[in-house]
Each structure stands twice: as C-alpha cells, then as structure tokens.
C-alpha cells in the first residue's frame, strides 16, 4: 500500500458514461492483485473532500487500469481527467479474490453486472494464467452497458452477455443466464461483482448448487485503509456476525461470510 501522487494517465477511452483509464504507476501495478482497489483523489481542490474507491481493472507493464461509470460528483470529476495529466493514487488496497492452484484445469464462472465487470477482467487474466478456464458472464440493462465485451473476448475467453432489454445476448437478468447455464455445467468456483441484488441472487444459487463463491462488495469509504471504521458491514468470520471493514477485511468476501439482509439504504 503506497501513495503515488504523480501517476500519469497514458490512455483514456469512454463509452457513454463508462470510462477506462490506463495510468502509469509501476510500484502500485507491481503489487496489485485482482479484487483490490485504489483510493483516487478526483480533484486537487476541495470539494470533494474524500478520495473515491475504484477497483483495479488491470495491472500490467507498469500501469494500472480503472474502469468506472459516472455515478456522482466524484466519478464525474474523475472522468474529466485527460491523457497526460496526473492522478493521486493510494493503493493497492484491500484483500482481493482467492485464486487457488487447485482450480487448474477447472471451469470457473466470473459474473459481472454493469460496472461490476471491472475487477473481473483482471481476475480472469489471473485465472487463465493459473490454468483455470474462466467463463465470463457480463450483464447490463442494455447493450450500451457492455462496452468491455470485445476486450474480454480478446483474452480468449468464453464470454456470455445478457441484457435486460434483449438488445444483446441473452434477454433477461444475468442471474437467469447463470442459472440456466448451471443446469448443464458444473463450475468449480464462482466470482461475482455487481449490484447488491444480483450478488444476493447469485449467492442463493450457489448455496443451492453447493458452489463455492466469492463476492466483491461495495461501500462508501472514508479512508480505504482501515482507519475510519466507516465502511463496515455485518460479516460472519470466526464466529458470530460482526461489523468488519470492507476496505481492509474485504472488499472480497466468501459466500458463507456475507450477511445479505444487513445491507441498508443502498
């Protein structure tokens, strides 16, 4: 975990209100693991006061990538940054996805809803390197919500897309697509990141199928490194559920650890 105040943006892409930045930051890139995140200062001026937590979309060749959707003031300011300017990054933070050697040769499902696809690209790359066979499920409301489809395919992966309105791929929720696929295939593990309802639904599926899984959770964060105690959520780890910090103990948690009904007010 370190601070890079002069991380240079070397590439920027956008699709509607989705943005992808490639940022030079050799030390952070060298340490980054899939599922970890960055706390990014979106402006050199106040407000906004706090950094914004953004998950790592990739880390390769001395650069990190972030993929995000404009959702409020912070991400809007972030989206205004241009190639050549610098960003102030804190990271890599948190505990990422677990990729066990025993997944080698096994099929694993990676399920991303909307911007939740961001960390799964990085994860799928690592899974592939481990020798696992990742299948990526990518769901959105409409085809405009799936800008990374080709990028994922370029990794040489099986990619299944779904849209709520049927404008691309499977017509319906990504959870329904996963459910249908599970009828004929038996993956060894499932990883997911996306809206709370999607993940809760997947968790129920996994429980029924006895499929081990990990989920990347989201929260408002004050600091990102465990100091403020602002991002807690009820988690069962070593006994009774208690408030654990998503930034430090997560953001990735196991299927059996998450208490879904505790999430409140979105």
């Amino acid at each position: 975990m370190l601070i890079d105040r002069q991380a240079r943006i070397i590439e920027k892409k956008s699709w509607g209100n989705y943005y992808l930045f490639r940022i030079e930051s050799p030390e952070i890139a060298g340490r980054a693991e899939p599922g970890q995140f960055l706390m990014i200062k979106v402006s050199n001026h106040l407000p906004p006061l706090l950094r914004r937590p953004i998950s790592l979309h990739n880390a390769e060749n001395g650069a990190v990538e972030i993929f995000f959707q404009v959702a409020g003031t912070g991400t809007r300011l972030l989206a205004e940054k241009e190639v050549g300017s610098t960003m102030d990054l804190l990271g890599p933070l948190g505990r990422g996805f677990t990729v066990e050697q025993k997944l080698k040769g096994q099929e694993v499902f990676c399920v991303g809803g909307g911007r939740g696809i961001a960390p799964l690209y990085f994860l799928a790359r690592k899974l592939k390197k481990t020798g696992a066979k990742p299948v990526v499920f990518y769901g959105g409301r409409t085809k405009e919500d799936l800008p990374l489809t080709n990028k994922l395919k370029e990794l040489g992966l099986e990619v299944m897309v779904s849209t709520d309105d049927g404008s691309a791929g499977f017509s319906g929720l990504v959870t329904a697509l996963v459910g249908e696929t599970l009828a004929t295939r038996s993956p060894a593990f499932l990883y997911a990141c996306g809206p709370e309802a999607m993940m809760e639904n997947l968790a129920q599926l996994c429980q029924r199928k006895n499929l081990p899984a990990e989920f990347s959770l989201e929260s408002i964060m004050g600091c990102g490194f465990g100091a403020c105690f602002g991002c807690v959520r009820k988690i069962k780890r070593n006994g009774q559920p208690s408030y654990l910090k998503i930034c430090q103990e997560g953001p990735v948690f196991g299927l059996e650890e998450i208490v879904w009904q505790e999430k409140e007010n979105g």
């Binding site: 106040l46 407000p47 906004p48 006061l49 706090l50 929260s219 408002i220 964060m221 004050g222 403020c228 105690f229 602002g230 991002c231 807690v232 959520r233 208690s242 408030y243 409140e264 007010n265």
Partner: peptide
C-alpha cells in the same frame, strides 16, 4: 460494535460520521 451503516456521508468540505465508537 458501533452503529449500523451507513455511517458516513460527505457534505461540502465536510464529512458526517456516525461510527458509534466501534
């Protein structure tokens, strides 16, 4: 245990917290 989340909200140049002394 501290308070139930959400525990933080950012306001202009400020932060409101209700951590509840976890």
């Amino acid at each position: 245990e501290g308070n139930k989340p959400p525990r933080l909200v950012e306001t202009p140049c400020g932060l409101i917290n209700s951590i509840g002394l976890q």
